Amino acid sequence: MKGIIRTRVGYAGGEVPNPTYRKIEDHSEVIQIEYDPAVINYERLLEVFWNSHDPTAMAYSRQYMSILLFHDEEQEKIIEKSRQAYEEKSGKSVLTEIKELDRFYSAEGYHQKYYLQNRSGIVEEVRGMYSDFNDFVDSTTAARLNGYVAGKGTMEDFEEDIAKINLSEETEQKIRELLEILW
């Protein structure tokens, strides 16, 4: 999605310090998004959030529940307005928990850019573009490619993005072949 600067998977929403995937306690798995408000606004991000899952369904566990965490009163007001609009449009009550973010804990490395990291023959070249793992995790390139290899996006967006990324022809072809299967 245009305007997203970096994304990181992690845990938040609970009280127990230092959660991990194996010991998540009272936290939920979340994604932290840094974005450029000159390119995409908060309302559009919320629109994507509401439409990317069923926020009216009861979660089967706290780990995978629908949750929105805000940083300030302005974000809270925008979330509430957006939630109300979703409820009016769908005719259903939203069960998404909405609360202030206390602390975000970054997930373990193997959870970051998960789909991309599990595409042998592609990830090696992308990882080689960055001096350390955190640079890879925080990169817009890795985030966008992670989405594509997960089957998200459009071929038009992919072609526009891939033209800006300096990948080998072989790796580009591997991604295209994968997208043909996924799409």
Rank of each mutant, 00 (worst) to 15 (best):
M58K: 15
M58V: 10
M58D: 08
A59E: 11
A59F: 06
Y60Q: 04
S61V: 01
S61T: 07
S61L: 01
S61E: 02
S61Q: 02
R62W: 01
R62M: 03
R62C: 07
R62A: 05
R62G: 04
R62L: 05
R62P: 00
Q63L: 05
Q63Y: 04
Q63C: 04
Q63A: 02
Y64R: 14
Y64C: 09
M65K: 15
M65E: 14
S66G: 10
S66M: 05
S66N: 15
S66F: 15
S66Q: 12
I67Y: 00
I67G: 01
I67N: 01
I67R: 02
I67C: 02
L68G: 10
L68R: 11
L68D: 08
L68Q: 13
L69I: 00
L69K: 00
F70A: 06
F70S: 07
F70Q: 06
F70K: 07
H71A: 12
H71Y: 15
D72I: 11
D72V: 05
E73H: 02
E73R: 05
E73N: 09
E73I: 03
E74F: 07
E74K: 15
E74D: 10
E74I: 10
Q75Y: 00
Q75C: 04
Q75K: 02
E76R: 11
E76T: 01
E76A: 03
E76M: 01
E76Y: 03
E76F: 00
E76H: 02
E76L: 01
K77F: 12
K77P: 08
K77H: 13
K77M: 12
I78K: 12
I78H: 06
I78E: 11
I78R: 10
I79D: 00
I79S: 02
I79R: 01
E80M: 08
E80R: 06
E80N: 04
K81I: 02
K81A: 06
K81W: 00
K81V: 01
S82R: 08
R83F: 11
R83G: 11
R83V: 14
R83E: 04
Q84L: 04
Q84E: 05
A85D: 13
A85I: 09
A85Y: 15
A85P: 10
A85C: 09
A85W: 14
A85S: 13
Y86F: 15
Y86R: 13
Y86P: 12
Y86W: 15
Y86D: 10
E87Q: 14
E87C: 10
E87S: 09
E87Y: 13
E88M: 09
E88Y: 06
E88V: 03
K89N: 11
K89E: 13
S90G: 05
S90Y: 07
S90W: 03
S90Q: 03
S90L: 03
S90P: 02
